[in-house]
């Protein structure tokens, strides 16, 4: 059985627990064991904490990496922010002896030492590389036939490409392949690689309008593509389009009602897990139109 150290982070368990539910239920069904990381802290946040102090950011990330090293397991993250932080820190510490030396001096305060003998993977990377779209296609029991899905990659699932090294950073296809493995159809649309704007929401309230208008550009294009829903794999992006949609409707007097799914939720439905066990009712933009189309509501 394949085993990973589960790095939950903050945003998913503390604000979007239904994403944690779908990930745990689906991985269990696919035979991937997830082991809790005791005492782990925030990854820490790749934008906020990194903006305040790089060395602190690197040291806290290294401490989390050390916990997984002690478990002798590779890390699996559910969040693309955690993925970026931990994968980048792992890369920097493995390739910069001066950083490793400095960080290990800090970590000696808590009797830890970064060694650099584990890998960091995002759950989509595990699904695509360790399991594969073919095997997923074999495993599903309820193909999502007729469902038109717009995929949203999320900046840090592919960038900085020199560090992430997963998929083609300009025109990635892994998420589209995973969607098609469920029997659904990935629809092409303009602005597919556009950022969700989450990075701005944290840095300043007064810039919220710019962040929302950026998310709106993508929603307009998805609407034009006639997709039934969008899917993504990052909780920051999820918030930008799920709760964000309600804020956009208020601010710009629009009437978007596009269901937004974390990929594992679509996979869960295709594996025959009920929408209530996946906690889909907790989404702010209602998913009922999709459930109706699939004959599940």
């Amino acid at each position: 059985m394949t085993k990973f150290a589960l790095f939950l982070g903050c945003l998913i368990p503390l604000r979007l627990p239904f994403i944690e539910v779908s990930s745990r239920r689906v991985m269990e069904k696919l035979g991937i064991e997830l082991v809790e990381m005791n005492g782990a802290g925030c990854c820490p946040d790749p934008i906020g904490i990194q903006s305040i102090d790089y060395k602190t950011w690197l040291a806290l990330a290294a401490r989390n990496l050390c916990i997984a090293e002690e478990m002798n397991l590779d890390i699996l993250t559910l969040c693309i922010g955690c993925y970026e932080t931990l994968k980048t820190a792992n890369h920097v510490l493995n390739n910069g002896p001066e950083f490793k030396y400095e960080v290990n001096e800090i970590l000696s305060e808590v009797d830890k030492e970064f060694k650099g003998n584990i890998q960091v993977k995002h759950i989509i990377e595990v699904l695509y590389e360790d399991i594969g779209p073919k095997e997923i296609e074999n495993q599903i029991s309820m193909p999502l036939e007729g469902l038109q899905v717009a995929t949203h990659y999320g900046c840090h699932s592919v960038r900085p490409s020199e560090i992430i090294q997963f998929g083609n950073p300009e025109r990635p296809t892994f998420l589209d392949e995973l969607v098609e493995a469920l029997g659904a159809q990935s629809v092409p649309y303009l602005e597919k690689m556009l950022c969700c704007g989450a990075g701005l929401r944290n840095t300043a309230k007064e810039k919220e309008e710019e962040a929302l208008s950026l998310a709106k550009v993508k929603l307009d294009e998805i609407q034009r593509s006639k997709a039934d829903c969008m899917t993504l794999s990052c909780p920051f992006c999820f918030i930008s389009y799920d709760i964000g949609q309600l804020q956009i409707n208020r601010k710009f007097k629009e009437r978007y009602n596009l269901p937004v799914f974390y990929y594992l939720e679509l996979l869960g439905l295709a594996l025959g897990i009920s929408s209530s066990r996946l906690g889909l009712k907790f989404h702010r933009s209602k998913v009922t139109p999709v459930l109706k189309k699939l004959g599940l509501a």
């Binding site: 368990p13 604000r15 627990p17 745990r24 005791n38 005492g39 102090d53 040291a59 401490r63 808590v110």
Partner: peptide, 30 residues
């Protein structure tokens, strides 16, 4: 959110080792 977690049968949120974290944060001057 805590109620949502309970309703969905999720485990309790794992606390961070704040004592250890504080030692690191003081050392870097954060």
């Amino acid at each position: 959110i805590l109620k949502q977690r309970q309703e969905m049968g999720l485990p309790e949120i794992e606390p961070s080792d704040t004592e250890e974290l504080l030692k690191i944060l003081r050392k870097t001057g954060f």
